[in-house]
Measured scan of single mutants.
Amino acid sequence: MDALKSAGRALIRSPSLAKQSWGGGGRHRKLPENWTDTRETLLEGMLFSLKYLGMTLVEQPKGEELSAAAIKRIVATAKASGKKLQKVTLKVSPRGIILTDNLTNQLIENVSIYRISYCTADKMHDKVFAYIAQSQHNQSLECHAFLCTKRKMAQAVTLTVAQAFKVAFEFWQVSKEEKEKRDKASQEGGDVLGARQDCTPPLKSLVATGNLLDLEETAKAPLSTVSANTTNMDEVPRPQALSGSSVVWELDDGLDEAFSRLAQSRTNPQVLDTGLTAQDMHYAQCLSPVDWDKPDSSGTEQDDLFSF
């Protein structure tokens, strides 16, 4: 819950932080000083300027060897085509990944977070970031790969997607708890209302004896509580940590079903599988986004697919 609360507080303090972009060759504004600060901008989305290598189908939802083989196929196909790589912007948030063309600003792909089953910074092609997700059109699994400016960037994108998945799962947990509370309150309110109706004398007997209905007592009954809980029953509950912020979080049926399955089948359902080692994760978390744009010590960066 700490990640969720800190993310909400950060967004309320400075929503404009989320509009910064990394990996864009110096076009961005001043960047936060450390990885923790940038992680807090996830709610509205972190932007990464990358190059799209392509996509291939895979048979399993996750796995280092599986993704490595898929990336190898994608890279080989991209090299064989001889075409310049498409420059894209990857927007990562707890909602998922939005992929747009840098030149036309046209939407290429919009992947809900619950469809993503794996992401990684490839070991062999260490400047490549990739994720595996279920197609929104059918049940097939797709591996999408992107060329980053350097290994640090690939690791940073991988960690960002993993963190977005974690925050999304926490949102789901909060929403589920809130819905259970509202359902319980609604049920209790309905029981109270039913009890009051059972003990209320029939209207005919009131008229016969000349008694008047006590409207004041009726007004004191917990009807307002019942209506408050039943009027918006169809509205999706939102985490309290975000009250007053500009973010509107809505959970669709697909996300609810997917996270429910994860909660039942996995020990740590909030953790998205990645190909990063503990050492890689520690190294990337210690980086400032400013470091992502620094040239690798191995030599001059080449803006070309064939540089790796």
Rank of each mutant, 00 (worst) to 15 (best):
P289S: 03
D280I: 13
E177R: 13
E44M: 08
D252H: 06
D256C: 06
D183V: 15
A284I: 03
E217S: 04
P222Q: 12
L103Q: 03
D2N: 03
R27H: 06
A121K: 02
C119A: 02
S14I: 00
D256S: 02
D191M: 04
Q136M: 13
L11P: 11
L147V: 04
D214Q: 09
R27Q: 12
L262F: 02
N229A: 12
Q136I: 04
V247M: 06
V174G: 08
E33I: 14
A78Y: 12
F306P: 01
G82A: 13
P202F: 08
E170D: 03
P289G: 07
K5N: 07
D2I: 01
S186T: 05
L251I: 13
K220H: 09
L90D: 00
T209W: 04
V161S: 07
M46G: 04
Q264I: 07
K30A: 10
T104E: 05
D101T: 03
R182A: 14
P94V: 04
K19I: 11
D291K: 10
T36Y: 15
S224T: 11
A185P: 15
D256I: 02
V192Q: 07
K179I: 09
V167R: 12
T274W: 02
D214E: 15
T104D: 04
T267G: 05
R27S: 15
V192L: 02
V174P: 05
P239A: 14
V192N: 05
E188D: 08
R95G: 08
A3E: 11
G45L: 09
T230L: 06
W249T: 14
Y114C: 06
L43D: 09
T267V: 04
Q279H: 09
A263C: 05
G254N: 09
L66P: 03
D304G: 13
D234C: 03
Q270D: 12
R13V: 10
K91G: 05
T56F: 01
G244W: 07
E170T: 08
S21I: 01
P201G: 09
T200C: 03
G275N: 08
Q106L: 12
H137T: 10
L262K: 03
A221L: 02
T209M: 07
L206D: 04
R115Q: 13
R261K: 03
T267P: 01
T41P: 11
L213S: 04
F146A: 00
L213K: 10
A10T: 15
I74W: 01
K166F: 08
D183N: 11
N229L: 06
T230E: 08
D126N: 03
L193H: 03
V236K: 06
T160M: 15
A185R: 15
N34P: 05
D296P: 11
Q197A: 06
L213D: 04
D273M: 08
S227P: 11
W35Q: 07
T120E: 01
Y114M: 01
D234I: 04
I113A: 03
Q173M: 08
I74K: 00
Y283Q: 14
A162C: 04
R115N: 09
G299F: 08
S224Q: 10
F129V: 15
R238Q: 05
K166Y: 09
T218D: 04
D2Q: 02
P222L: 11
T160F: 09
V58S: 08
S224D: 07
Y118C: 02
Y52Q: 01
R261E: 06
A156N: 07
S14C: 02
E180I: 04
D293L: 08
T77H: 08
A133R: 09
T120F: 03
K51A: 02
D252Y: 03
N268M: 10
T120Y: 03
Q136E: 14
S298Q: 07
K181I: 11
A3C: 09
P201V: 04
V192H: 06
P94W: 04
T36Q: 12
K84P: 07
W172C: 02
V111N: 08
T230D: 09
R238S: 11
E59Y: 04
V167L: 12
G24K: 10
F169C: 03
E109A: 14
N268F: 01
G210K: 04
K79F: 06
D273C: 05
C286W: 10
D280H: 05
V88H: 01
L99H: 13
K91W: 02
L203E: 06
L53S: 00
S288E: 04
S298C: 03
S93Y: 15
R151E: 01
E177N: 12
F306A: 06
F169Y: 14
K91I: 06
G190Y: 02
N232C: 06
Q86A: 13
A7L: 01
W249V: 04
I116T: 01
S260I: 10
A18T: 15
D273Q: 08
K84D: 01
V111R: 08
G25F: 09
S6G: 15
V236R: 14
E170S: 06
T38E: 13
G275I: 03
T160E: 08
T267K: 07
R238W: 09
A168S: 09
T149N: 10
K72P: 01
I12H: 10
R261G: 05
L242W: 14
Q86F: 10
D253A: 11
A80M: 06
E188N: 03
F165T: 02
A154M: 00
M233K: 12
Q197C: 01
P295K: 07
T120L: 03
L147R: 00
G299A: 05
G25K: 07
S49L: 12
S245G: 10
K179T: 14
F146M: 00
E180G: 15
T38R: 15
M233G: 09
D198I: 09
L66F: 11
L90A: 05
V192E: 05
S135H: 14
K150E: 15
N229H: 09
A10Q: 15
A228Y: 07
G190F: 03
C148N: 10
A68H: 10
L251Q: 14
F129K: 00
R261Y: 05
H282S: 11
S93F: 13
L262G: 03
V128M: 01
G244S: 13
L43V: 14
Y118A: 02
H282C: 13
